[in-house]
Nucleic acid binder design. Structure first.
Lengths: 327, 327
DNA sequence: CTGAAAGCGCTTACAG
DNA sequence: CTGAAAGCGCTTACAG
């Protein structure tokens, strides 16, 4: 591997001059710059990230903390991972995966060893244990998901409140009178996953404001189980509108409805574009775009990295209404 | 951040002595070691990965090259990513994501910049363009998937041939007389994804050897489409045995069969444990375990990193037969 | 068994 | 505008 010294010799300049053209932080006369560039391509030189990291105290790596829950039905997860990696690449950063079972310790070590410049956390919950090591180290980090306390970190999340409001409003416009909210398993609500509780609470409030009764059902996320539950629930025929916030349920719903006599209830769901694409969800929907949240998270982190003293941000991303294609 | 110099001062020894206890490559008397250890925890010292990488010429990072195909139904993908990250962690390595649209260039740059020690490639196909930059640089890499030419790289893959043999044999034992092989979309076979062709070819050969007619069907990977296709195919009632090699098809099959009069054909499928878990597949199956292939890939890479001159390996992992639970 | 010195390949004040 | 020198924080021969 050629080094900066080889390039300097080849170009007949000092090493610091080569470094100047590499970093672009200093004026270098066009003629010299040209000679250096020629030497670089002649020798097929690439700056060593290792040496640069040591000298600049920056790795140009972003740690991505992701914990895969055993029993989760999360088709959008890999979309988030790629989208974040993609966005990071656009800013010159690479993604380093942090997947240790003991996430806080994993984070602590990554920070201490200095392998990353900043962190992005996926699926942050209300009282997330991964935030402590970040605050202790005063490290740059952005949460995807909304912790109750955002001191010391930036946060991006879908605007679940707005989504809930729009969905209930829409049910109302469609003439729905009696809503069933098909939500996540009870554990999800209990685990402090605020995306679940925030949506539920605002949906309840909005329905009440409109005088619409709304019954809450926590469904499974296992496709076969959810199918049974849907079948049981729907055959009662008590509801003329279904608000769905449960990926497995919306994926299975078309099949469950097939077994039932028409007319079917009005259905509207909150899910990701990824899920919609995969399962071709045939209902009205409010969709989150993982790419958008991912890009926003990376942007926030890069901004933080460039200005550590900026006020901490809490950014809410609006979901997009999509009407079912006629079929 | 404390440095090795601080630790040396605190412990009253030379910096090289601290380094010796850190690396463990040299004998250090117990008393000295203890003093050093005390100083380390006193100062809360962690070795700088940046400095170590520059000095040792190793980053302890593994690049994971993964390309997410837009229209793919691949629930096991995130399982692979985690499992690889987990296994890497067990060997002291971290995973760096390489997801650039121009994968060969992405690989070339990562190698040249020296940000990784080795590579793991996911979903390697027959004539994979990502192998060229690796061979050029004589870089350590293991493919998951079987390229036609494995010069210069190690490869791990499921033993699709064996899986096909066992599956057809099993159909025979179950009394199946006329098989439908429900496979991947035609594009998959055409793209050089050897997992598809290898399974298909051996299944055909095995069936022929047993005198069993086997009809081939390329199905969609979009759940709703596949459901229609299954319905159309099954209502003909021409086959008494279904061999499935298509994740979307096996996921939708239980629902498709529900609409049909019994008796149902005998069904056996090749898929991942991940898919089985997610969709609770109720049929006999031969299952691949992403965790196993992932661990094998990491093991191979670590071995390669420790001995660059070992002969290149092609490792086939056997899938596991799992009988449907009675229901 | 321990320690002083050089080196990994960059960047960045600082002189000139 | 350019170049010589120090420094980033480690590891690793090499003396002693």
């Amino acid at each position: 591997m050629a080094t900066i010294g080889d390039v300097a010799r080849e170009a007949g300049v000092a090493r610091s001059t080569v470094s100047a053209v590499l970093t672009g932080r200093k004026y270098v006369s066009p003629e010299i710059r040209e000679r250096v560039d020629a030497a670089i391509s002649e020798l097929n030189y690439t700056v060593s990230a290792r040496a640069r990291a040591l000298a600049t105290n920056r790795t140009m790596n972003i740690g991505l903390v992701v914990h895969f829950h055993e029993a989760e039905f999360a088709p959008a997860l890999s979309t988030y991972i790629t989208a974040i990696s993609e966005s990071a690449g656009n800013h010159g950063y690479r993604i380093m995966l942090l997947t240790g079972a003991d996430a806080p310790e994993d984070i602590r070590r990554a920070i201490a060893e200095g392998v990353i410049d900043g962190l992005i956390l996926l699926n942050v919950v209300e009282d997330d244990p991964r935030l402590a090591p970040i605050r202790e180290a005063r490290f740059a980090a952005v949460a995807i998901g909304m912790p109750s306390n955002t001191d010391g970190i930036d946060a991006v999340d879908l605007n679940f409140e707005e989504a809930a409001r729009r969905i209930v409003q829409r049910v109302h416009e469609q003439g729905g009178k009696h809503i069933a909210l098909l939500g996540w398993p009870q554990e999800v609500y209990d685990s402090g996953a605020t995306y679940a509780t925030r949506f539920r609470d605002v949906a309840l409030a909005s329905a009440q404001a409109l005088g619409l009764p709304l019954d809450l059902y926590s469904l499974s996320v296992t496709p076969s189980e959810v199918r049974e539950q849907l079948h049981a629930l729907l055959s009662q025929g008590n509801h003329d509108a279904l608000v769905v916030h449960n990926d497995a349920a919306i994926a299975m719903l078309p099949l469950a409805l097939r077994d039932l006599p028409t007319p079917h209830p009005y259905v509207i769901s909150l899910h990701s574009t990824e899920l919609a694409r995969l399962f071709q969800v045939p209902f009205d929907a409010v969709e989150s775009e993982p790419e958008l949240s991912s890009a926003a998270a990376v942007d926030l982190l890069v901004a933080r990295l460039n200005d550590g003293d900026a006020p901490f941000a809490r950014q809410l991303i609006d979901a997009v209404v999509r009407e079912a294609s006629a079929d």
